[in-house]
Amino acid sequence: MTALAEAGAILPSRGGIVGALSDLFWRRPKLLVFLMVLPALLWLGIVYVGSLFALLLQSFFYIDDFSGLIVHEFSLRTYAELFRAQNLDIIIRTVSMAAVVTVASAIVAFPVAYWAARYARGPWKAVFYLGIMLPLWASYLVKVYAWKLILAKEGILNWLFEQLHITFLLDWWLSLPLIGGNSLSISYTGTFLVFLYVWMPYMILPIQAAIERVPTNLLDASADLGATPRQTFWKVIFPLALPGIIAGSIFTFSLTLGDYIIPQIVGNSQFFIGQAVYSHQGTAGNIPLAAAFTVVPIVIMVLYLWGAKRAGAFDAL
């Protein structure tokens, strides 16, 4: 400490312009915050929100029936078109699929999440973590491709049914109306299985997070007060895990609503919302209708998010 000369109470400014700039940031901390937020704000504000807004604007235009050209006038005509039987069908089909996929993934995901949160210890913790993370992050197309392999006529699933001599079960299932079809890969059952597989990891993580947050002594307390394990589950664990399930359902629901690739590759030729959007903006050139179609998932998700927020699901994200 002897090396330092006796200094005054205020040290001289160092570093020229950098030092001056730093002094300015200290005096005006809000300026610094503003400068830091600005790039992301500009990017997201202009590129993303700007585009979104432009799209919404176009949903109020309409296509002239004779010329096939877009009429740049404010009108609700395009929205009215959404309520035509064929378009309404698409919406109902997509929303029903999203709902079924959500419920199913909650059922399949819960035990995995519960086990990972409560019982996985030591190396098993890592195994579960990676076992959930790898499917989550594996390429979306590869996952869909894997199911194309599985569901193919000459694929592993049909082979398995054959080996077990239960092909009649599969045939019976495929003969059912609506969920059946000529083969698994062109039925709603197939579409559903792929959706379930691809989005399920998004359900596991929030549930796991919610369960991990339940203190163990709460379970001990419940048992101590005379609850059977079944009662403890339904009265203590499940209500506390519910925000996690709702948080996960936001993902599964939203992702299913917006997907257009899975039903295109595995499923019958009936459109889902995503496909309708894709075809209307593409070959059909009906941008207003495509835009109006995208408003449907946005409205559904806004309502869904609003409900989820009221249920306290955002704390589990």
Binding site: L52, L55, G258, V277, A291, L305
Partner: peptide, 16 residues
């Protein structure tokens, strides 16, 4: 951008 379905991001950008 990740809360809304990717198709919305996609078509918004394309039309922009």
């Amino acid at each position: 951008p990740i809360a809304l379905p990717g198709i919305i991001t996609g078509i918004s950008l394309r039309s922009a």
